[in-house]
């Protein structure tokens, strides 16, 4: 017989374990966010007072703001390129059957599974050999490789939600391919396209290793700048950067969750 006290005990254990893990997941970032609003030059916890000094220092230092702007530019361009190519490929793969399709799909997804350092080294050596020195071009090429598989995953999942007969019926009614795409596929796929773009944007914005290998001196992306700062000088500005970056992440997360709900 299961006594009710017995059940209570199990519930208690489960709850305690869950709370422990969630605290472990959330607390470190939360502490940094709290510290970023502290009023001392050096980080202390708990902060002795509230101030936005660290954020002011971030915006006062061109090194940080330029890195942030570069990251935005690269992430927007990479995500958009990935979305265009990835969506086309996802539709092509979902709406056809041919020999070797599995192989093409595996190939396009494979950067997810491959160690980033291998891709980073490969692009570093290859772009140097080709003599491609433009910092933006180097980063965008690298970031599209890293983000395209994620667009493919999200858009393919979105396509699976769409009833194919909707496209068929539109075609039979006389709609050309482009009309079907614009009037049927895209509206139905809108949530997945939004998720795919945000996924690619965040992945690119946070990308460290490929950027670390590919950036040219003096043109650091935000994560590269953060990486070298944690490595070498541990500037307290990092706390402010972390807060803003996490804010961006939470925002992206909420939009994606909302889109996922819309899709279902």
């Amino acid at each position: 017989m299961i006594s009710s006290r017995h059940i209570m005990t199990w519930r208690g254990v489960g709850l305690a374990a869950a709370i422990f893990v969630f605290v472990f997941l959330i607390l470190p970032t939360a502490i940094v966010i709290i510290m970023s609003f502290g009023d001392k030059r050096d980080l202390v916890f708990p902060p002795t007072g509230f101030s936005l000094d660290l954020f002011r220092r971030f915006f006062a230092e061109p090194g940080w703001t330029q890195s942030a702007l570069l990251s935005f530019r690269i992430a927007i361009l990479s995500a958009t390129l990935s979305l265009v190519m990835g969506t086309a490929a996802a539709i092509g793969l979902a709406r056809s059957r041919f020999r070797g399709k599995g192989l093409v799909s595996l190939f396009l997804h494979s950067p997810i599974m491959i160690p980033g350092v291998a891709i980073a080294l490969a692009l570093y050596l290859y772009l140097n050999m080709l003599g491609i020195r433009n910092n933006d071009a180097r980063l965008i090429l690298g970031h599209v490789v890293m983000t395209l598989p994620f667009v493919l995953v999200t858009v393919s999942a979105g396509l699976r939600h769409i009833d194919e007969t909707l496209e068929t019926v539109a075609t039979v009614m006389g709609a050309g391919l482009f009309t079907v795409f614009r009037r049927v596929t895209v509206p139905l796929l809108a949530p997945a396209l939004t998720i795919g773009w945000l996924f690619a944007f965040v992945t690119s914005f946070d990308e460290v290793i490929v950027s670390w290998f590919l950036v040219r001196a003096g043109h650091m992306t935000l994560p590269v700048k953060m990486y070298s700062s944690i490595m070498f000088d541990i500037s307290p500005v990092l706390a402010a950067v972390s807060t803003m970056l996490t804010g961006l992440t939470v925002f992206a997360c909420i939009v994606m969750a909302a889109m996922q709900k819309k899709e279902a």
Binding site: I31, V32, M35, F205, D206, S242, L245, T249, V250
Partner: peptide
């Protein structure tokens, strides 16, 4: 959401948090 936010949080933010 409590799982996804850490999932999406930059690895540098996390690493920095641990150093602090």
């Amino acid at each position: 959401l409590l799982v996804l936010v850490p999932f999406w949080t930059s690895i540098l933010v996390k690493s920095y948090a641990f150093t602090v």
